[in-house]
Design a protein around this nucleic acid. Structure first.
Length: 227
DNA sequence: TCGTGATCATTC
DNA sequence: GAATGATCACGA
């Protein structure tokens, strides 16, 4: 496979889907070589490496802006590490959790709903016993939450946001939520941020993120591939 | 410090 | 083995 330069942003959903089809079945190493990325031995110090490689390959505009990866198409790209059995190996990060100034925040205008409005899922066979470069890109597909899926997400979101508004962030752990959980999302234990504490007092706590539990993404995969 | 990309590592 | 808690890199 020859070397290629930086892909331009796809101008249509069909163009994006075409690119997805083109890379299905390739290994991470194939893509890395084609675009001159140096594949790391492991992901210990570069946990988001595969995701960023895929973004580049598909022409997603890199950056840490809180916007969809394909802004002109309104589509969010999510790589999904899967096992030999085709089940998700990890939860899926969605967005940071607001821990203060929650007035006016509703499910309808929430970042979680916006992020999950239209997702391009790209499964990647990522068992730990497979070298990074040998991991296989699967068949990506577009997804939008069904009414039922949205209801599940909304219920979990509202329950946990309410706890945060009541100053109960420290009572929230990863066990809460049927499909959407809140867990730490921080550089390390020393990275703290403001949050509403008991009695409305501002406290310092670990930044948190919303994550989709694996049962939720497993069902999305099942619906997509078992038809 | 926050938001992007996530997986690692320990516990259950 | 699955799930929760902790962590890594980078750009603005």
């Amino acid at each position: 496979m020859s070397i290629s330069s930086r892909p331009k942003a796809p101008q249509s959903i069909n163009e994006l889907l075409s690119r997805i089809d083109d890379i299905a079945g390739l290994t991470v190493g194939d893509l890395a070589n084609k675009y001159q990325f140096k594949t790391p031995k492991d992901l210990l110090r570069e946990k988001g490496w595969i995701g960023q490689l895929i973004e580049w390959v598909l022409g997603a505009m890199a950056g840490s802006k809180p916007e969809p990866d394909f802004i002109n198409l309104g589509i969010e790209l999510k790589t999904l590490p899967i096992s030999y059995a085709g089940k998700p190996l990890e939860t899926t990060f969605v967005s940071v959790v607001p821990l203060k100034e929650l007035q006016g925040l509703t499910w309808q205008n929430s970042p979680v709903k916006k992020k999950l409005n239209h997702v391009l899922w790209l499964p990647i066979l990522s068992e730990r016993d497979i070298a990074i470069e040998q991991r296989i890109i699967g068949s990506g597909f577009l997804w939008q939450p069904s009414h039922y899926e949205e209801a599940l997400l909304r219920r979990d979101w509202e329950q946990q946001i309410e706890m945060i508004a009541l100053g109960e962030i420290e009572k929230i752990n990863g066990k809460l939520g049927q499909v959407l959980q809140i867990r730490p999302k921080a550089a390390n234990a020393k990275a703290l941020t403001d949050a509403i504490g008991p009695n409305g007092k501002i406290i310092q706590t670990l930044p948190r993120g919303f994550y989709l539990k694996t049962n939720f993404t497993a069902d999305i995969l099942k619906a997509q591939f078992s038809l």
